[in-house]
């Protein structure tokens, strides 16, 4: 009998849940999205909670695309207020958003993230690279004697005699990462162009530039290039177990692990917050968060948090985000002004 009555009680509880939930209004800001932006968002959220009477925002991760998908699911307190992204929002995502009623989106650029190429401190002397060398080492097919042939290069020295005679073993971000896109565009495709392969492949493909681009960014699958679908911690673990490996990291991750990793220059430029901010270092990307204008005023502290996130004290060159590894945006003042005026993305753009 006891069991029966407690069952009844439990069923009553289950039935009353929606009513209870409806009575709850959300106090804290909900953020989802890019795992690259996550550390910055949680540092900003922590400082925001410390300094204001608003609750500390909740920052979930899961990737730029997953975050924007949640963001575009609709307007209302059961949807996220902010989506972090390590790439600009896509046209298709703006359309999905609009179809679900998310019309006024405010785009906020928080700064830049450098992508660096690092190897074990006591590994081979990987100190300087060019995009062309990476392309020649990692492309699935290269042009030789006027034809596309599978890439057979085994050591970096075969690609360029100035490089160490170590086997090619690169740990690159997997395709689900936003970093992969930047890596393909700024390193592999750039290298393809620099090496003159893009034009050669386009000529082979009868002038089809798109097909040539696709062929350029196709990476080897014979074990020389390894996709890492996990985080940078996984890349680091792989490099530590194989000293010949070279990994693609975020600048912030590298700066937190300089005692075990050494970084290589790209086209002669050492990656640092300075060289990335000035645009000298070629492989970097902007980081964003997207904000629903409709939620401003509905969720307490939302605009205050967004403004705090990109304030000089937080996102400026001396702020805690830069201390972690964010490359401060030289045009931060313009971003702050746009946010203050709540300027939204033009749906037609």
């Amino acid at each position: 009998m006891k069991t029966l009555s407690s069952t009844v009680a439990a069923l009553a509880l289950a039935a009353s849940l929606p009513a209870l939930a409806a009575a709850q209004s959300r106090g804290q800001i909900q953020i989802a999205g890019s795992s690259t932006v996550l550390p910055y968002a949680s540092i900003a959220a922590e400082a925001f909670g410390e300094n204001f009477d608003f609750p500390t925002p909740v920052v979930a991760s899961g990737g730029s695309s997953a975050g924007l998908q949640q963001f575009c699911a609709g307007v209302g307190l059961d949807t996220v207020d902010i989506a972090n992204a390590s790439r600009p929002i896509r046209e298709s995502e703006i359309e999905t958003c609009a179809a679900n009623g998310v019309k006024d989106i405010i785009e906020v650029r928080i700064g830049y993230d450098g992508i660096v190429f690092a190897s074990k401190t006591d590994g081979p002397g990987f100190t300087a690279f060019t995009p062309a060398q990476w392309y020649q080492a990692l492309a699935a097919e290269v042009v030789r004697d006027g034809a596309l042939v599978p890439n057979r290069a085994r050591t970096w020295a075969e690609v360029d005699p100035s490089l160490p005679a170590a086997p090619i073993l690169a740990f690159v971000p997997g395709t689900k990462h936003g970093t992969r896109e930047v890596f393909e565009e700024k390193v592999i495709l750039q290298g393809c162009e620099d090496a003159g392969a893009l034009a050669a492949i386009a000529a082979l493909k009868g002038g089809d530039e798109d097909a040539a681009t696709d062929a350029c960014v196709k990476l080897r699958t014979d074990g020389a290039s390894v996709d890492i679908d996990g985080d940078y911690t996984e890349t680091l673990a792989r490099i530590q177990s194989d000293p010949n490996g070279i990994g693609v990291f975020g600048l912030a991750f590298y700066e937190n692990n300089t005692n075990v990793l050494k970084v290589a220059t790209m086209s002669g430029v050492t990656p640092s917050t300075g060289t990335i901010a000035s645009g000298e270092y070629p492989v970097s990307r902007p980081l964003f968060f997207y904000l629903k204008k409709a939620h401003i005023g509905e969720v307490p502290g939302l605009k205050e948090f967004a403004e705090f996130f990109v304030s000089d004290a937080v996102a400026g060159p001396d702020g805690p985000l830069a201390a972690y590894g964010l490359v401060s945006d030289p045009e931060l003042a313009a971003t702050q002004a746009r946010l203050a005026n709540e300027e939204t993305l033009d749906p037609a753009s």
Partner: peptide, 21 residues
């Protein structure tokens, strides 16, 4: 369901805390 997240504030006591992050 968004529980793999950075949550800094403690949830309230029962039963309201069940609805806090």
């Amino acid at each position: 369901i968004g529980m793999v997240a950075f949550v800094k504030d403690f949830p309230a006591g029962l039963p309201d805390g069940l609805f806090d992050p």
